[in-house]
Design a protein around this nucleic acid. Structure first.
Length: 558
RNA sequence: UGGGGCGUCGUCUAAUGGCAGGACGUCAGACUUUGGAUCUGAUUAUCAAGGUUCGAAUCCUUGCGCCCCAGCCA
């Protein structure tokens, strides 16, 4: 709708509503999370969809907490969710709502349904309700308490609310159809007796509405026009329709879309909670997690996340997106915006034998070749440098263009150097390279026009600052860790080498990097300063590597 | 075996009766002071079988496959 892309099926439906005048041409969407965990990339899809629809159609967007189950919900989650939604850029203005603020209204509506003879108090416990419900292929049976009088039901409901009954001993149920092929219509529970302190209403209530009863009402109260949810709620739509129609209140259009799954990760709040509690990761914002707080810490931008979901589209087809698509989105964004810096992850000492001892010289380095406005900086060159260990091979294979004995390469923005000899320790490990430089190649160009096959990044050994660099790999080694076909628990597929920490040497200017600052370390990848950084002792998270043609070449060779 | 939903390149997705297109990936090449970026080219798909039609991914029929539902979770 907004760009050249064709409208997805939900936008097409909204267009149709606009044409037919349904909802008076208004569009009002919402994102309705339960505050029982941190938001992840799947939620981001929903947020982008809902907010995007409101924005594209001059509508409104609400953030509403679906806090109907105090047993699982916490203020910490409320706070993190608000922060994440804001970070993503979904503007809900002052429309921040809580289902718990509607508890009284919901209760009044429950009484009205009782009065209409459409709801009843059941004495069956949870196990008994299950037995009476029947199975997928067999109809259920009516509860023996289904035909209580209106007066009795009303009195019982009020006593439930007043706290006269034990937890789980009674429930309020809608009187619909115990033989429906749709199990959601087999007299669903509307209220359960549950004594738990709610993070907002405290102990004011001892009965809490179920999601099925509450959700449609929340949307109705807020005047939502398009209630967008995921596929598994398609089966519930007839129930929500039933409640809304029996109550005769504003009736939004529910539309279901497929959730966005990614390979090499898990994306359910239950499993993410388990990874956190089981200390398989360092917390909800561990940069290996698919949570929004984690990818933010890792260095992803909200622009990249939005662009990613925009590229993925919206359909009803179950799918698993290759995580490479996500990485591509963040590379595209960061390539445009990230300042380039030089950093050496695994340092190998290099001495330039013909460069004067004690001399240092500043050389011009471009900050971002994709953005001339980013300007340039000076990098210090000297006699002793660090090069990337993997940029040198004593016996290079055919397609390895980098440094090797006798070979000349260019140091980025500096000089051409030639490897003259190799210093090794007792174990035969290369510990140092002795090189010479060509003074005529200052800045990186040779007067005679010769062009080395490789340009390497480097730092001056005497000036560089040590920095912690955290190199992440995918959290799971299997593409589909949750696939039941494995017959194994998803945690068995946790990638044991998903985190590698090295002490890098970085340009001096990086010593004062602030948490959240993003850079491209040339030839290595995009990195983001972690909140653990201290002045003089920065820590960087690798957001994503650069595309690496050599790595691919190497892999091909086996 | 009840009810609901879904099947298009390797992946994500367009085309709603009129040339199956795009993006990512992959492969090849150009360019390059990042083996990055950029540019060019190539590559590969309508679940199956029937039917309707001048013409079907699209409509009909019958199969097949996958997902969701038997919480007082959401």
């Amino acid at each position: 709708m907004t760009d050249g892309k064709p409208a997805h099926f939900i936008q097409a439906l909204v267009d149709e509503h606009a044409r037919t005048g349904r909802f008076g041409g208004k569009v009002h969407t919402r994102f309705p999370p339960e505050p029982n965990g941190y938001l992840h990339l799947g939620h981001a899809k929903s947020i982008c969809l809902n907010y995007g629809l409101a924005k594209a159609n001059q509508g409104l967007f609400n953030l509403r907490f679906d806090d109907t189950n105090p047993a699982k919900e916490e203020q910490e989650y409320v706070d993190s969710i608000i922060a994440d939604v804001k970070w993503l850029g979904a503007d809900f203005g002052d429309r921040l709502f809580f289902a718990s603020d509607y508890f009284e209204q919901m209760y009044q509506w429950a009484e009205s349904l009782v009065k209409k003879g459409k709801a009843y108090v059941d004495d069956l416990n949870a196990d008994q309700v299950r037995e009476y419900r029947g199975t997928l292929t067999q109809a259920g049976r009516n509860s023996p308490f289904r035909d209580r009088t209106t007066d009795e039901n009303l009195s019982l409901l009020r006593r439930m609310k007043a706290g006269e009954f034990a937890d789980g001993s009674k429930s309020l149920r809608a009187k619909i159809d115990m033989s429906s092929g749709n199990l959601n219509l087999r007299d669903p529970v509307m209220y359960r007796v549950l004594r738990a302190t709610h993070h907002r209403t405290g102990d004011a209530w001892c009965i809490y509405p179920t999601y099925d009863w509450a959700h449609g009402l929340e949307d109705s109260i807020e005047g939502i026009t398009h209630s967008i949810c995921t596929l598994e709620f398609e089966n519930h739509r007839p129930l929500y329709d039933w409640f809304l129609d029996e109550l005769g209140i504003h009736h939004p259009q529910q539309i279901e879309f497929a959730r966005g799954n990614l390979n090499y990760t898990v994306m359910s709040k239950r499993k993410l909670l388990e990874l956190v509690k089981g200390q398989h990761v360092r917390g909800w914002d561990d940069p290996r997690m698919p949570t929004l707080s984690a990818i933010r810490r890792r260095g992803y931008t909200p622009e990249a996340v939005r662009a990613f979901w925009d590229e993925m589209g919206v359909t009803k087809i179950d799918s698993v997106i290759d995580v490479g698509r996500l990485e591509n989105a963040v590379r595209t964004d960061l390539n445009r915006t990230a300042l380039r810096r030089m950093a050496v992850l695994r340092p190998l000492k290099v001495v330039i034998e013909n460069y004067p001892e004690g001399q240092e010289e500043p050389l011009d380095a471009v900050n971002n070749p994709e953005d001339s406005a980013a300007g340039s900086r000076k990098v210090l060159f000297s006699r002793e440098l660090y090069l990337e260990r993997e940029d040198f091979m004593e016996n290079p294979p055919k397609k390895f263009f980098r440094l090797a004995p006798g070979r000349e390469v260019r140091l980025r923005y500096a000089y051409f150097i030639t490897c003259q000899s190799v210093v090794k320790d007792a174990r035969g490990e290369v510990t140092e390279l002795r090189c010479t430089y060509d003074p005529a190649t200052r800045g990186g160009d040779a007067p005679d026009g010769r062009k080395p096959k490789a340009t390497l990044h480097w730092v001056s050994a005497g000036h560089a600052v040590p920095a912690e660099a955290r190199l992440f790999d995918r959290l799971f080694s299997d593409e589909f860790p949750e696939d039941p076909k494995h017959g194994r628990d998803y945690k068995e597929f946790l990638n044991k080498s998903s985190l590698e920490v090295v002490t890098a040497r970085v340009e001096p200017s990086l010593a004062t990097a602030k948490a959240g600052d993003r850079f491209q370390f040339e030839r290595l990848g995009y990195f983001c300063a972690d909140p653990d950084s201290k002045p003089g002792a920065p820590a960087f998270n690798r957001t994503v590597t650069l595309k690496d043609t050599w790595a691919k070449e190497k892999a091909k060779g086996g």
